[in-house]
């Protein structure tokens, strides 16, 4: 009897240790998972010349990984809440989907047409893709990971942005010199003239901002009263981003970015980048601006508090990342 009691006490202790260990393991995974989600801001760079995506940690400013995707990756968008990266491959006419937690390719979505640029709705249930050759915007269901509908738009749909406030899709038509605005049911709200050769677009609040490549300018379009005005930048601007009433514009031929104050309507600074800077995105949390350099196969990183260059990092051949490419 005495012996039996001892054994049962021993067993009880043993099971306690098991339970404790089990909880420690759960806690470890819980915190490491949350740590990753809360603290890592990463840039995903599409390298059209070597069919890869470079992933750069924006805290350490070091390259983490290079992933093989489809042929000639160009456009990109990131679902911030779902931690998914959508990369458009114009050579294989498909989309590579990357899980941004583990940085692994999880699926490929066949389109059958060349995806130029991508964006998503606020709920992250749909990704919209401009189809350059057939003048369509495709809707991809994120749950189903397939194209669910296609809508005809104006010619050469190039940049696409999503306006959260009005739930608009905002699209530049490069060869028509227009901007088209569609509502969430894909009805055309407005077609408005831009400058010559509109390409990159950004939209936030009541405005859309369009880079006019051949006019060396950016158009600011009011989405309520449809008034518009322009400001001049460097040679052949490609894309634009806005944060805290400051606009950042890439000047592809000057190898510079223009930093423009939207309140005072003045250029704050013009800074050197790598060669042929094409696209740009901001890490809001880290106060960083990242620019992709097609010519020098790299990215240039700037501090958005003092507008100074921090570092140039080598990525892959012909870095482009047309779209939102930073996981916040």
């Amino acid at each position: 009897m005495v012996k039996q009691k001892k054994i049962s006490i021993f067993n009880l202790k043993n099971s306690n240790i098991f339970i404790l260990t089990f909880f420690l393991i759960i806690l470890y995974f819980y915190f490491s998972y949350n740590f990753k989600i809360d603290h890592t801001s990463k840039a995903y760079i599409t390298n059209q010349g070597d069919n890869t995506v470079s992933i750069v940690d924006l805290e350490t400013l070091k390259k983490l990984k290079t992933l093989e995707v489809g042929v000639a990756p160009l456009g990109i968008t990131i679902l911030q809440k779902k931690k998914l990266v959508f990369v458009g491959n114009v050579g294989t006419d498909d989309i590579s989907v990357i899980d941004a937690v583990n940085d692994r390719l999880i699926t490929t979505i066949k389109l059958g047409t060349a995806p130029l640029s991508l964006t998503s709705n606020f709920e992250e249930t749909e990704v919209y893709v401009t189809d350059w050759f057939k003048n369509n915007v495709l809707t991809v269901s994120v749950d189903e990971m397939r194209v669910t509908s296609s809508q005809n738009v104006g010619i050469t749909p190039s940049g696409i942005a999503y306006n959260e406030k009005y739930q608009y899709q905002v699209i530049t038509n490069r060869d028509a010199n227009t901007l088209e605005i569609y509502d969430k049911d894909h009805n055309l709200v407005k077609k408005i003239e831009t400058g010559n050769h509109p390409f990159g677009v950004y939209s936030e609040g009541n405005f859309a901002y369009v880079a006019n490549v051949y006019d060396d300018s950016v158009s600011i379009i009011n989405l309520v009263d449809w008034s518009k005005h322009e400001f001049l930048v460097g040679a052949h601007p490609y894309n634009v981003r806005v944060n805290n009433k400051v606009a950042y514009v890439t000047n592809t031929i000057d190898d510079t970015i223009t930093i423009y104050d939207l309140d005072s309507k003045k250029t704050i600074k013009t800074l050197d980048t790598g060669e042929t800077p094409e696209n740009l995105d901001l890490s809001i949390k880290l106060n960083l601006l990242v620019v992709t350099n097609w010519g020098s196969d790299s990215i240039s990183i700037f501090d958005t508090q003092n507008f100074k260059h921090i570092k140039e990092i080598k990525t892959g051949a012909q870095s482009r990342s047309f779209g939102d490419f930073i996981l916040q």
Binding site: Q48, G49, A72, L74, G91, L116
Partner: peptide
């Protein structure tokens, strides 16, 4: 042949 399909600048 796939590469020649898209709006890709050449370098």
């Amino acid at each position: 042949s796939a590469l020649s399909h898209g709006p890709t600048p050449q370098k």
